[in-house]
Amino acid sequence: MKDRETEQRLRREAKALLEQGKVDYIIGFETGSLKFTTTPLITKDKDSVDRLIINPFIVNNLSEYLTELKGRVGIVAKGCDNRSIVSLIQDNQVKREDVVILGVPCPGIIDLSKVEGLVGKDRDELDDVTRDGDKVVVTVDGEKKEFPASEVLFDNCLGCEFPTPQEYNILLDESSSLVADKTASRKGIETLEGMPQEQRWDFWEKEFSRCIRCYACRSICPACFCERCFVEESEPQWIAPVPRWQDNLIFQVIRNIHVAGRCTDCGECERACPVNIPLRSLTKEMYDLVDDLYHFKAGMDKEAAPLMTHYETTDPEDFIK
């Protein structure tokens, strides 16, 4: 019900922005072509804003498109997307005055893979999946099954610290009532931390052996905004552009170092990976690492200097001889 109202308000605001010439584009979500799926809607057309939707499946981090579009953009942003936008502003990739942020307080996004795992059916075989407060109701073969939201939301949503956008022009709803579950959100990482060092390396060797170098993790990541990525450099050639686990792993380690302090734990890289490599067990670790070391959280303050261009004389150096 609430989504319906938010949706109506969004359509009104988006239409007004386009009509008044305040933006050239609107970026939001519309119904996708597969069951439950949503898809980005990027439009200049004021009539197509009626296709904009808000529901528990609006998963993409739309800030990804900001560096590509020329002109002023009205953009639908959940908590994490919002921080990615701020981070892009910090990095001078986007001007604050060029974006009109339509903030959506986010109750957490439903991970259909988790639903599939719980009910033992693929998503196209489910009749319905709806959110009801702290529960998610799944209808299969006419039968309703209830699950606590914490069992079916994306891991990164469970760890989300700021589900309600902090930097916005219009906030489409009151603040979010997301129930976080920090432990569940770090489960993958904790399992890894419990392993001996060599075993962790073996784990990643195995995982990265199936990487096909589609670069979806990089393409979908708003923090990976380089026009030319180190991977494609040929003089010197840092890593081979062929999908071998060694080079795949180096690619991902360096990518994580590059997005340190920019990654907002939006979870998009892991979701995009077609071969299910648990990429978030890397990105979330880096996210927590920079928080521990430098008390830095990405995209919290548009005036703040980006993490790696900045330093404090008091930065930890206990590891230096």
Binding site: T39, P40, L41, E64, R213, C214, A216, R218
Partner: peptide, 13 residues
Amino acid sequence: AAKCISCGICTLL
């Protein structure tokens, strides 16, 4: 093409 992010999934797979 607007929403395509130029990854290689659709073609590689």
